[in-house]
């Protein structure tokens, strides 16, 4: 149509003029200030900022668990009114139900499916996250990394079109964390979800994201949005990677020498 801009990839999520304040009376804390963001379908976005800056609050608002003080969250053209099974929030492994087995957890969101379909999906996602042989295990019998995989599998099993991940690998040891990043990218490429990933780890954001949204300290504003146009798998010793990483270090005001 004349006059209309034709976009090749449609907008999945748009945040406009988002503000968030906590508390009331004299003790008001501004957490988010004037956040505007457009996310395309299938994009991997990292929200990067220092601890306690408000990026988790932002993710909780997008997930529908919190209402913003002002501004609007629109997904697929509809304003967000609450949590929705089409968009799954992945907590750190703390969201796994300790009273359910691996199977039970992964099948948790599949209560609308027939028994056979449910079993088929569970088997598929158990395999996808590499938990074969642990189907009947309870979370207390699993390591932190395995519990994290259970959470991711449970989220993917309902076939959502968006995933919200709140520092999902923060509690893992550094080796497991690297493995989990690789697996997440593999899953993302296989399943093409739109991903919002909160982290305070600069390296992590540059390794994973299509775009890194760099946020300020509280009240969180968007400082800059960095396009990470390096194809996967990314060589983390390449010039390009190091340049992008260092420029984020500079933006945040950190020296990268210790």
């Amino acid at each position: 149509m004349a006059g209309m801009v034709q976009t090749t990839v449609r907008s999945k999520l748009s945040l406009t003029g988002l503000n968030m304040t906590f508390g009331h009376g004299n003790e008001v804390v501004d957490v988010l200030e004037n956040i505007d963001l457009e996310v395309r379908e299938g994009e991997f976005i990292c929200l990067l900022g220092p601890s306690g800056c408000g990026k988790s609050t932002l993710l909780n608002i997008v997930g529908g668990f919190l209402k913003p003080s002002s501004g609007e969250v629109v997904i697929d053209g509809e304003p967000v009114r609450g949590p929705d099974p089409r968009r799954i929030f992945v907590f750190q492994e703390r969201g796994v139900f300790p009273w359910l087995t691996v199977e039970g957890n992964i099948g948790f969101g599949l209560f609308r499916l027939s028994r056979q379909e449910k079993a088929r999906r569970i088997a598929h996602y158990v395999e996808l996250v590499g938990l074969q042989g642990f189907e009947r295990a309870y979370p207390h019998e699993l390591s932190g990394g395995m519990k994290q995989r259970v959470e991711v599998a449970r989220a993917l099993a309902v076939n959502p079109d968006m995933l919200f991940l709140d520092e999902p690998f923060g509690a893992l040891d550094s080796i497991t964390r690297l493995e989990m990043r690789r697996e997440l990218l593999r899953i993302w490429r296989a399943e093409r979800k739109t991903i919002l990933f909160v982290t305070h780890d600069i390296e992590e954001s540059v390794q994973l994201a299509d775009r890194v949204v760099v946020m300020s300290t509280r009240p969180a504003r968007i400082r800059n949005i960095m396009e990470i146009n390096i194809p996967h798998p990314r060589d983390i010793s390449s010039r390009r990677y190091l340049d992008l990483r260092d420029s984020i270090f500079e933006q945040i005001g950190l020296a990268h020498k210790i």
């Binding site: 668990f65 099974p85 799954i88 907590f91 969201g95 139900f97 948790f108 969101g109 209560f111």
Partner: peptide
């Protein structure tokens, strides 16, 4: 009860 667990339930449309 962990608020995470309740939120997971709500998120999955319970």
């Amino acid at each position: 009860i962990s608020s995470n667990h309740l939120n997971v339930g709500r998120n999955f449309g319970l």
